[in-house]
Design a protein around this nucleic acid. Structure first.
Lengths: 116, 116
DNA sequence: CGCGTGCATGCCTTGACGGGAATATAACCG
DNA sequence: CGGTTATATTCCCGTCAAGGCATGCACGCG
């Protein structure tokens, strides 16, 4: 599961900030450094993690390295999330209904927990 | 922002496994322990993290604690992911068509979206 | 009641991670 | 070539999280 690299890459707030930053447009390292208020080495290390996760690609422009977002790996997140998506729609929907509905409606859905 | 709790909760592979496990049905702790091969205390601690992130709810049934998934917080992940979703659709589409549109492209390694 | 079961919590150790400073590397400029 | 800019890498340290063990706690049962 190389999902692991993806999740752990995005688990860090600074890295999510960088990704969000690159959502607007590609940026050179120096700009990212200034934007997220970290030291240049730390930023470079974060960028390395993102690169290893496949989330960003780098293009060399003279001495500068311009980092660009590659959103493709996030499709894996979306795929992982997919089974839950319909669930939370149901539950949010059911919640609103329940708060507003009859006092004695059934609480347990058909799929009953088994086992003793 | 409690996004942090959510992301860090799901960043751990064991916790993702637990969540996936609870996707099928609610389960008591003992069952989760057996399923993910950790010690009971470790499992309980993971469950605590998931509970703090709002991802699971617990129902007491005699001595047993039955954990159930609460997918609602994942909507936040979905929301975060939303801006990228259209991007990766575009890029996947464009990827097969024109990998390199830059006129001055130096020599980028072939951007292979392969998983290892 | 006391005891066994099922789970949570506290303590401790270890390993991974993040941050900064210093240093290395690469590219441009003169 | 030497110097300067822009970024990557290394070293070191503090912090934190994960895991196991021992223990505490609640509940049900005999």
């Amino acid at each position: 599961m190389s999902d692991a690299a993806l999740w752990s890459a995005l688990a860090d707030p600074h890295r999510r900030a960088i990704v969000t930053l690159l959502l607007e447009r590609p940026r050179p390292v120096g700009e990212i450094v200034r934007a997220c208020g970290l030291s240049q080495p730390s930023t470079s290390k974060h960028l390395r993690v993102l690169r290893d996760a496949g989330l960003v690609r780098v293009r060399q422009d003279a001495q500068r390295r311009v980092y660009a977002l590659d959103p493709a790996p996030m499709a894996a997140l979306d795929a992982w999330l997919a089974p839950y998506r319909k669930l939370w729609n149901e539950s949010l929907d059911a919640l609103g209904r329940r708060l507003d509905a009859a006092p004695d409606d059934p609480r347990e859905p058909p799929p009953h927990p088994e086992k003793d």
